[in-house]
């Protein structure tokens, strides 16, 4: 489209992101003559906004969230799928955690190779300057409810390489970290305890998910 003419419903763009509670303004949103100019994605956006606004003003959102939040939270905390990604010696311990002695599959963990199918990013080793953009990309490729575990001293603060010219001083300098597991290297039991701590955190902190924003 070469023309810069704005298509669609101007009232729609006004509604985006605005948390209005005025009922008249909500009802004004679909103008009578403008229906045919809506594209399908705009229509979906309008439906999203209308449903959200109505649910917000009538208090339905709180009711729905009160039911759906525990159910969704149950699924999220009992099925963490970490990314199969190893940096250094803590990755060996991560593999040992899946072995018969410390069977981490009991907690429902399945290591997936693609970041699109993961919930948890385990940073297990020193992040050098060359790795940092790649790790940030991997974090950004993961779909939205996602958590990060910093495993070992190197991922927490740089560890023995704290004054090196090429090692980042901790994973939390560029991605938000949820759980820190100290140890050099981390024992498999400690990794399992880290996942249980993450469950505890998800149960306490995760907001309701049914209606967005």
């Amino acid at each position: 489209m070469s023309s810069k003419k704005v298509r669609g419903n101007p009232g729609l763009r006004r509604g985006v992101g605005s948390k209005t509670t005025d009922l008249d303004e909500i009802m004004e949103d679909p103008p009578a003559g403008d229906w045919l100019t809506l594209r399908s994605d705009q229509l979906l956006e309008w439906i999203d906004n209308a449903v959200y606004n109505v649910a917000e003003t009538t208090g339905m959102r709180e009711v729905v969230n009160r039911v759906t939040r525990p159910i969704f939270n149950y699924g999220q905390r009992f099925s963490p799928h970490p990314l199969h990604f190893g940096i250094m010696c803590c990755a060996i311990e991560m593999g040992q955690a899946s072995a018969p002695d410390h069977d981490i599959d009991r907690l429902g963990l399945v290591y997936r190779s693609s970041p699109r199918q993961c919930d948890v990013l385990i940073v297990n080793g020193p992040v050098c300057e060359k790795l940092r953009p790649k790790l940030k990309t991997l974090y950004e490729q993961m779909p939205e409810p996602k958590w990060v575990i910093a495993m070992g001293e190197c991922a927490i603060s740089g560890g023995p390489y704290w004054d090196s010219y090429s090692v980042v001083a901790g994973a939390d300098t560029f991605i938000p970290v949820d759980v820190y597991i100290p140890g050099c290297p981390v024992r498999p039991e400690a990794l399992m305890h880290g996942f249980l701590t993450l469950q505890k955190k998800i149960r306490e902190k995760e907001p309701g998910m049914f209606l967005r924003r």
Binding site: I71, F72, Y74, G75, Q76, F78, S79, R106, G108, R116, D119, Q141, P143, E144, P145, M209
Partner: peptide
């Protein structure tokens, strides 16, 4: 562990579709 399938399915519903 038969509830593991239930947890996986519920989690998949809540994930972002990229």
């Amino acid at each position: 562990g038969i509830l593991q399938n239930l947890a996986d399915g519920i989690k998949a519903i809540t994930k972002e579709l990229i």
